[in-house]
Design a protein around this nucleic acid. Structure first.
Lengths: 100, 100
DNA sequence: TCCAGATGTAGCGCATCACGTGACAGAGGG
DNA sequence: CCCTCTGTCACGTGATGCGCTACATCTGGA
């Protein structure tokens, strides 16, 4: 993602990018290697750097974290009662607070 | 949000909800009071409980965290160089990995 | 051939934070 | 009066992002 598309396009090395982002070289490397998550602070830095929306980077991380959480809590989730919420209320809340 | 719409509709108290989610009562309270963030694990539990999508709860938290990050790093972000990324590449990446 | 820079990887310490637990106080209903 | 629910605080723990140091590898230029 970042390494294969953005950095080559900007003609930036990992070391240079880390300097411009004002973070440690290893910190950026951990993100690139998937060893660390994309934090909101990191997303804000990346958004500033290349113009991609911050929530884009965060949504990628979010989907990843959610996937892990659902699998780690699979057996626990099965024990949680499922309550019916009226669709009218559901759609009402989603339209009120949903992303455009 | 949770307290004002979902819980009254389900006729659930905070204590009961915490028991059904298999978490400590104080943990749920911290989330309701905004003292703690909605983690992916918590979002998965809430999604199971009331049927609202997990990414909905996480998007709420995400927007909040991002807002804080951008303000906390305001002066730092100003020092990060802005690089122009071709719109063709931008939209290409967004369509590839963007949420529907 | 030699060397400087970039990169990958590992370990250490620090700060932050979600979470559980125990405890205490106030409000409200039977 | 007692019980439940609730809000709040304090403490400890485990996880994690981050900076830093250090070492090995590789590549391109002098």
């Amino acid at each position: 993602m970042l390494r294969n598309w953005v950095l080559p396009e900007l003609r930036l090395t990992v070391t240079q990018t880390a300097q411009e982002l004002e973070i440690a070289r290893q910190t950026l490397h951990r993100v690139l290697a998937g060893k660390a998550a994309v934090t909101p602070e990191m997303a804000a830095r990346l958004a500033r750097l290349c113009g991609m929306p911050a929530h884009f980077w965060l949504d990628l991380q979010l989907a990843h974290d959610l996937w892990h959480a659902q699998h780690a809590l699979a057996d626990t989730l099965e024990r949680i009662p499922v309550h019916a919420l009226p669709d009218t209320l559901k759609t009402d809340i989603l339209t009120r607070h949903g992303r455009t």
